[in-house]
Simulated scan of single mutants.
Amino acid sequence: MTEIRLVGTAHVSRKSVEEVRSAIEEFQPDIVGVELDRGRFVSLREEAAEPSVGEILKGGNFGQLLVQWVLTYIQQRIGAETGVKPGAEMLAAVEEAEAHQKPVALIDRDIRITLARFWGRMGIWEKIKLIGALIYSLVSVEGQKIDVDEFTDQDVVSAAMEEFRKFSPRGAQALIDERDAYLAHQILMLGGRYERVLAVVGAGHIRGVQRYLDAPETLPPLPALTAGVKTLPWAKIIGVGVTILFLLLIAAIAFSGVGIDVLLTALLYWVLINGVLSAAFTLVAGGHPLSAVTAFAVSWLTSLNPLLAAGWFAAIVEAKIRKPAVGEFRQIIEAETLAEMRRIPLFRVVLVAALASVGSTLGTVLYFLFIFPILGIDPTVVIADGFSNMVEMIRGLF
Rank of each mutant, 00 (worst) to 15 (best):
N389R: 14
I371G: 09
V258C: 00
I135H: 07
V352C: 03
E142F: 07
L362N: 07
T282S: 13
G202N: 02
T282M: 06
D378V: 08
F368I: 01
V94F: 02
L369D: 00
L366F: 06
E217V: 05
T337N: 07
K236F: 14
I24T: 07
G132W: 15
V365S: 02
L304H: 05
F27T: 04
L222R: 13
I377V: 15
V258D: 00
A93Q: 08
L213K: 05
K320Y: 11
V197A: 01
E126A: 13
S43C: 00
W125V: 12
I107A: 04
F372W: 15
A184Q: 09
A254Y: 13
I253H: 09
I31Q: 08
V148H: 09
L283M: 06
W300D: 00
M393Q: 06
L65E: 13
G241W: 06
I344A: 09
A93C: 06
I111D: 04
F246V: 03
L375G: 06
A280T: 09
M161Q: 11
G228P: 04
I260A: 14
A266M: 12
H205P: 03
I176G: 00
S256F: 04
R196N: 00
H205L: 06
S137L: 09
P233G: 07
G228E: 15
M1E: 08
A92L: 08
